[in-house]
């Protein structure tokens, strides 16, 4: 088991109080597992992704623990986290297009970054070249400035850069959302290839695009309003979801081969609750067609089948 997150709580500090963006998810990630992390905006999926590598200034660690390959990850301690960053946990950011310093040549920036982390650039240079070629780029991109590359090229460079030290865990945060469809596909396949070649051991792919993540992920975890709703193998999530939210989410996706001229795509009525002062019990209750009295108590995230976890009283 590569990653184990238990009851992690990270709140956003605001003037009006704490926004409970991440309210105690507990899950595990197996070695070699690619997990898609899905949910709508504000569900806490990005917060979870960030919490595992670097809390930004507004985020406050409240409780919970993270374990990576048997070692405790001190997510609350910015300085101690530096030992884990890049070497054991790495990130492909949402903003990969602008993730590189515009006034440094890519190779020089890479060298400076590596040297600052105590890695000799000369020693990884060959591997870097190999991987640059693996993602279909020319080695001479290292002698260029980021502005000289197209968006897709920059994305690939960042992917190589982020995984260069073979981290145990890679967080890919909305990596495909700024790309066109064909590039999306290529990026997704590269992620799988990186795993297969053991550049990274396991991966969390944060996305709101379930249909894309379905193609690459081994499992999919759905979040709702700061909590986990369901985690299961990718196929199960798509074909036999148990949580009413997942069901509605999946049914809101367009299907291949269906013409939507006559039939309107349906969404999920209502909107997620505010997390400044979230309602007690199941947070999906207000939008849930099945809600009843027992939902006033928070349902536990339990394994209903092998590798299939659901947080819903009605999921049996």
């Amino acid at each position: 088991m590569s990653l184990k997150v238990s009851d992690l709580r990270v709140y956003y500090r605001t003037l009006r109080g704490d926004v409970r963006a991440l309210d105690g998810p507990a899950f595990t990630l197996a070695d070699g597992e690619i997990m898609g992390l899905a949910g709508e905006s504000g569900s806490g999926k990005s917060t979870l992704g960030k919490s595992l590598i670097r809390l930004d200034g507004r985020m406050k660690y409240v409780g919970g623990a993270v374990e990576l390959d048997g070692d405790e990850v001190p997510v609350w301690d910015d300085r101690k986290m530096n030992d884990f960053r890049y070497k054991r946990i790495s990130l492909i950011p949402q903003y990969a297009m602008s993730a590189m310093n515009p006034t440094r040549k890519i190779g020089r920036m890479t060298a400076e970054l590596l040297e600052s982390r105590g890695v000799r650039f000369r020693e990884v240079r060959e591997e870097l070249n190999r991987r640059i070629e693996l993602v279909g780029l020319d080695v001479d991109v290292l002698d260029r400035y980021p502005i000289e590359l197209s968006g897709g090229m920059k994305q690939r460079v960042v992917m190589v850069l982020s995984t260069l030290l073979n981290p145990s865990l890679l967080i890919a945060d909305e990596v495909t959302s700024a790309l066109d469809v064909s590039t999306q596909r290529a990026v997704a396949e590269t992620l799988v290839e990186f795993r297969d070649r053991r550049f990274v051991k396991s991966m969390i792919v944060v996305t709101h695009d379930i249909s894309l993540v379905y193609q690459i992920a081994d499992s999919i975890m759905v979040m709702y309003a700061g909590r986990l709703a369901e985690k299961a193998p990718a196929r199960t999530i798509i074909e036999a979801p148990r949580h009413p939210y997942t069901k509605m989410l999946i049914s809101a996706l367009p299907e291949v081969g269906v013409k939507y001229a006559e039939k309107r795509l349906t969404g999920i009525p209502g909107s997620p609750p505010g997390l400044l002062d979230p309602p007690k019990g199941c947070r999906f209750r207000a939008r849930c067609p099945l809600a009843s009295e027992e939902c006033e108590e928070q349902p536990p995230f339990v394994e209903v089948e092998r590798d299939h976890y659901v947080a819903c009283w009605k999921a049996e």
């Binding site: 530096n82 030992d83 890049y86 006034t103 400076e112 600052s116």
Partner: peptide, 21 residues
Amino acid sequence: ESEYANYLQALGAPRRLIRRY
């Protein structure tokens, strides 16, 4: 607060480097 600075921080680059950039 720019994105390249965020990225470098996430990869654990020391402040010195980020400030220089």
